[in-house]
Nucleic acid binder design. Sequence first.
DNA 1: CCCGGCCCCTGACAAATGTCATGGCGGGAA
DNA 2: TTCCCGCCATGACATTTGTCAGGGGCCGGG
Lengths: 210, 210
Amino acid sequence: MSDQSAPIRLLLADDQALVRGALAALLSLEPDLTVVAEVGRGDEVVPTALRCTPDVALLDVEMPGLDGIAAAAALRVALPTCRVLVVTTFGRPGYLRRAMEAGANGFVVKDTPARQLADAVRRVHAGLRVVDPTLAAETLATGASPLTERETDVLRAARGGGAVADLARVLHLSEGTVRNHLSAAIGKTGARNRAAAVRIAEQNGWLLGE
Amino acid sequence: MSDQSAPIRLLLADDQALVRGALAALLSLEPDLTVVAEVGRGDEVVPTALRCTPDVALLDVEMPGLDGIAAAAALRVALPTCRVLVVTTFGRPGYLRRAMEAGANGFVVKDTPARQLADAVRRVHAGLRVVDPTLAAETLATGASPLTERETDVLRAARGGGAVADLARVLHLSEGTVRNHLSAAIGKTGARNRAAAVRIAEQNGWLLGE
DNA sequence: CCCGGCCCCTGACAAATGTCATGGCGGGAA
DNA sequence: TTCCCGCCATGACATTTGTCAGGGGCCGGG
């Protein structure tokens, strides 16, 4: 397709070097695609993109430095001509929502067939939106996070498995306040446990952002 | 290398279709390697291998049906001529240990550079062992799991975040017994929490096997 | 044979956790 | 402005959790 025009320039961002390289190999098989840059950290996306001016950036969500959603948002303002395709391991409903709000043009889960990736890239480059339909439905069903900002903070801090006293110290809050927020989060998630609440919130992608 | 002899036949097992396909593309670039089969589930490894008779099998650890370690062990007896290279996302010390005990010939983490993968495959095919040196050291340091079988069971069941009563029901144990096992596990892991104990055990790869 | 390890259970206790009622503070919507 | 609503905080309470000290039964090695 369109072999006569200039190839689509790609930037790959994934923290696992092996899959990064493998994706590069896969996409390089297509004559109309070229990988012009690869990075392994979220905070390298914008600097590298400014240097290499890719047409499309493929961003993983789970990355050190800066998560893929935040990187997408930053890239949006730094290089508006560059389309963003988020490629992630987990089909967390919240991820899709956040990615779209951050201005991503497409969202692909890593267990879609390999052949479809190149098409997704072309679609995104053409200005179309690409979204996994199953995931889209699930996202609509799950809805946005019911958690308040502090509740999210507390839940995030609780992931490590620390006691209330620890969380209070880290968050500069009273122990009672922490317990209140936790209780609220437990109620909203429908869990009966702090641990279960963390798990549920995580699965829904409500705990993004460090 | 050795373009004149028959190419090395490969089987790929990874639950994420995209990385599976990408790895296939990457390895197919090498003239002396051929991908003869791809599967997305652990329990498909042996049947497919018997049909396709690969020389080397690349197995992910996290897979539905059967984890990569168990698949490696099964493959070992079903098709002894086939070498096994475990390729995994997480450098859990316990994974490496278990993989070696299961008869794997090599162990590669997914954030090693892409170029090294083909070499690893060739080394394994030549009968050599391939192991990430950093991870090997860490494995030696961490040692085998100190957890007893029941302690492991209880900890596994506790991942969901259920209360003691729930675990007791699932495991057909008294609540007191569950608490005792949990307490022991907490002590051995050095945690001060059930949740933290689960986290630590998981990170060390002590919770494998459904 | 006896000892030690693992397993299962009991009962009791201290500590952590989850819930509730209550109240003050601030900002945004009606 | 008034009235929510989120946020922070207290204190009190019931429940859950983690710990400890027991007690049995089953093995396998010294």
